[in-house]
């Protein structure tokens, strides 16, 4: 699997709702359209939450992967 390119990384491991969403929004606000954020989370609820957040904000979820309790997301700013 090729590693997805990203412009910023956000580590939300050990955080629960709503912190991963709030921190994602803050970092995305500082980014330019088209740039990609790599987000790490250990919150099982983030799978649905990140989907919902991108749906509501129009940002693009490039990929979501889960590996032994670690969730990795790549989000492209719209």
């Amino acid at each position: 699997m090729t590693e997805t390119m990203f412009d910023q990384e956000l580590d939300c491991q050990g955080m629960l709702c709503p912190l991963p969403i709030l921190k994602t929004k803050k970092v995305m606000d500082t980014m330019n359209i088209g740039e990609v954020l790599k987000l790490l989370s250990t919150d099982a609820g983030s799978v649905n939450d990140i989907n919902a957040w991108t749906k509501q904000t129009g940002n693009h979820l490039v990929s979501a992967t889960a590996n032994e309790g670690l969730y990795t997301y790549f989000l492209r700013k719209a």
Binding site: C17, P18, I21, L22, T24, K25, W53, Q56, T57
Partner: peptide, 12 residues
Amino acid sequence: FILASTAAAMGW
């Protein structure tokens, strides 16, 4: 506060 901050993070 959770709902309000999250909704605000969605641009509401």
